[in-house]
Nucleic acid binder design. Structure first.
Length: 165
DNA sequence: AAAATATGCAACCGCCACTGC
DNA sequence: CGCAGTGGCGGTTGCATATTT
């Protein structure tokens, strides 16, 4: 059995994953197996969900999205995946959790640089989030039918549209 | 032009929840 | 009920590229 490949994906691998996804759907284990074990199921899933899925919106984040994300983070905490699923544009294209997470981090970094005096205040704001109970379980997932399935600790799931108002 | 530093993106890692046995 | 396998997630890290010195 070949050893697990690491690092960046080639165009050939991407194409293969896309083809296999058509046949196997979200059976990542099956897709990984069909790739002769070169990548494991977690790598395959990550690659597809974050980059290859045709419904991904690859445009830059708008000001509205940035505002919504900042607001969302204050209220719900770092639930990037939930935010990403709700952040669909008019054409139905969505953001990925990775995009949201990276965007938030770099935005936060920029702001930290701009106002180096205020990191403590920012942290305090995070601690005051009413519905945030820490990392564990503070997210939701989807069942096989794609329905949103709360993991138990989310007290409220606001529609992202409301955040934009 | 070269070196140093900053920035952004993508992949890795470990944990948690769900499911089936 | 307990366990193993799998999927999903957020945090962290590393690399490539851009910018600054």
């Amino acid at each position: 059995m070949p050893s697990l490949k690491k690092g960046h994906w080639s165009a050939t691998e991407d194409k293969l994953v896309l083809e296999l996804h058509l046949r196997h759907g979200s059976d990542w284990k099956g897709i990984a197996a069909a790739m002769n074990g070169a990548r494991d199921h977690k790598q395959v899933r990550e690659r597809y969900v974050n980059h290859l899925d045709p419904s991904i919106n690859h445009d830059r984040f708008s000001i509205e999205e940035e505002r919504a994300l900042v607001k969302w983070n204050k209220i719900e905490g770092p639930q990037w995946a939930v935010f990403a699923r709700r952040m669909r544009n008019g054409d139905g294209f969505r953001r990925t959790a990775l995009q949201v997470k990276n965007f938030f981090h770099r935005t936060a970094c920029r702001k930290n640089k701009r106002q180096k005096d205020a990191p403590m205040e920012q942290q305090a704001a995070v601690d005051e989030r009413p519905n945030y109970e820490g990392r564990s379980g503070a997210s939701s997932t989807q069942n096989v039918r794609g329905e949103e399935k709360p993991r138990g600790r989310i007290k409220s799931l606001m529609n992202i549209r409301n955040l934009l108002n």
